[in-house]
């Protein structure tokens, strides 16, 4: 049984709804990804071009999603809407974008140019890797 995604707001914003639907569908389709839910971790994902953010807390017992930046997260990812959607479909190698592919190189170039910003990348690389694996389509 896949872990429930619980929205803490009565009306999840667009990015919260998108992330929640992706996480729920991916874990249901790939039950082996449940192992990435623990230990607990907190993330903020923000679409900078539309100024919309969501906070995600993952744990073995489930996933909670809240509108906006609600806490100091372990990892914060900020980029344009297109970059964030692209992150979900980029081929991964060890949980990070595969630079052997054009899409993977594009993500890395955006990171280097700071068009895509990841806070916590150096302190919590494992937690970032778990999020990308959970969101990967």
């Amino acid at each position: 049984m896949s872990p429930a995604v619980r929205y803490l707001d009565p009306e999840p914003n667009g990015i919260a709804a998108l992330l929640g639907a992706l996480l729920e569908a991916n874990v249901a389709a790939h039950p082996e990804r449940r192992r990435y839910l623990s230990p607990p971790a907190t993330y903020v994902v923000e679409a900078s071009d539309v100024s919309v953010a969501a906070t995600i807390r993952i744990a073995r017992e489930g996933i909670r999603i809240q509108n906006g930046r609600m806490t100091e997260p372990d990892v914060a990812v900020e980029g344009t809407s297109a970059m964030l959607v692209g992150l979900s479909s980029v081929p991964l190698r060890l949980g990070l974008p595969d630079v052997m592919t054009a899409d993977g190189r594009s993500v890395v170039l955006n990171l280097l140019a700071r068009r895509l910003r990841v806070k916590g990348l150096l302190r919590h690389p494992g937690k970032l890797g778990r999020l990308t694996k959970l969101l990967s389509v």
């Binding site: 667009g14 639907a21 992706l22 569908a25 539309v50 919309v52 959607v85 479909s89």
Partner: peptide, 25 residues
């Protein structure tokens, strides 16, 4: 309105298998 931005802003509501839609952006 850009469709991806519209999705992020909740201006467009999608129902269906989202991973499939993301693969076919």
């Amino acid at each position: 309105l850009d469709p991806i931005k519209g999705m992020m802003q909740g201006k467009l509501k999608l129902k269906g298998d989202l991973p499939t839609i993301v693969r076919y952006v």
